[in-house]
Simulated assay, not measured.
Amino acid sequence: MLVWINGPFGGGKTQTAHELHRRLPGSVICDPEHAGFGLHRMLPPALRGDFQDLPAWRQGVYEVLDLALTRHHGPVIVPMTVVEPKYFDETVGRLRERGHDVRHFSLLARRETVLRRLRERGFGHVVQLVAGKDAPLRRESFAVTKLDVCLERLRGAEFGEHVWTDDVTVAQVADHVAASAGLTLTPNTDSPLRGRLRRAWTGARHIRFD
């Protein structure tokens, strides 16, 4: 089974994916961003746009996930924002046509909730301490410019199942996704402090500098 976690940038995809992976024995995370940033590094800076616009990215994601689903005997978890219907069809759609069991979830939240999460992730807390809570989201400018279109398109029926995350924890989102997909998670034994530290570490590990 493939569990595709969609949502706006800053919507909690990575944290949810890692919570599922932590509590789902035999699962793996396959992050298509790695392929995208690899393609970016191969191109001259002037040619680097949205890597999802590259047919090579979409074809590569399909082929790699097809291989993982065929050879790996456990759930494959994919945290990736895809809001272009054509690109969605070329990845999720083709995998379903291939016969794979693909469960797709869009994590949604109010605009102000996502903006707050963008400020808090990575080094966001440090920036707020130094520059104030209203400091601009310079490093997250791409995510901010894409936010409205992401929230609008992901509400469409083709991007279901929709999961609203404003007032629930990451663990609760993972519980919902797993239950809907028919997967059984191990109990969440984290204390509130340990959970915060775990999420902070996950966020720090996924900071991009390129």
Rank of each mutant, 00 (worst) to 15 (best):
V149E: 08
V173K: 10
V177Y: 03
E120M: 14
D175P: 09
P45S: 06
L67T: 06
A174P: 06
R22C: 11
R96D: 12
E161R: 10
L154H: 12
T81E: 02
G203E: 12
R94S: 04
G26F: 15
L47N: 02
L154D: 07
R208P: 11
D148V: 03
D53Y: 04
R139F: 11
P79E: 05
Y62W: 04
R41Y: 06
R117I: 10
T14K: 01
V127R: 14
V144M: 15
K146C: 06
V144K: 13
F159I: 10
R199Q: 04
R194I: 04
L69D: 08
A35T: 09
L108K: 02
L43V: 02
L129K: 14
P85R: 06
D166W: 01
L2Q: 03
F159M: 08
E19P: 13
A17N: 07
S27V: 01
V78D: 05
D101A: 15
V170G: 09
G11F: 11
V28W: 12
L43S: 08
S191P: 01
P79K: 10
R196N: 03
R110S: 00
L147D: 13
V102C: 14
G156E: 14
Q52D: 13
K86Q: 11
V173D: 05
E140K: 11
E140P: 05
T145I: 08
V64S: 15
R103T: 04
F105W: 15
R48E: 05
R96W: 06
V78G: 11
L193Y: 12
R71Q: 03
D190N: 02
R103L: 03
F88N: 05
L43P: 10
D101P: 09
R110W: 00
F209I: 07
L39V: 07
V92Q: 09
V114A: 12
L185M: 00
R23P: 00
A157H: 07
R208Y: 05
L107R: 03
F9V: 00
F142I: 11
K133N: 01
R196D: 04
T91L: 01
E97A: 15
W4V: 15
V78R: 13
H125C: 03
A174M: 06
L69V: 11
V126D: 09
V78M: 11
G203I: 01
H206E: 09
L39F: 10
L20M: 09
P32D: 02
L193K: 12
A17M: 04
L107W: 14
E84G: 13
P192S: 12
Q172K: 04
L137E: 00
H100R: 12
S141R: 05
F159L: 01
E33V: 04
T169A: 12
A131C: 01
V76I: 14
M80E: 06
A171D: 08
F159V: 02
F88L: 12
R116H: 14
C150S: 05
V114Q: 06
R23A: 02
G26T: 15
L20N: 08
R139G: 13
V76M: 13
G10P: 02
V168P: 01
R205A: 14
V82Y: 07
Q59M: 01
A174Q: 06
G203L: 02
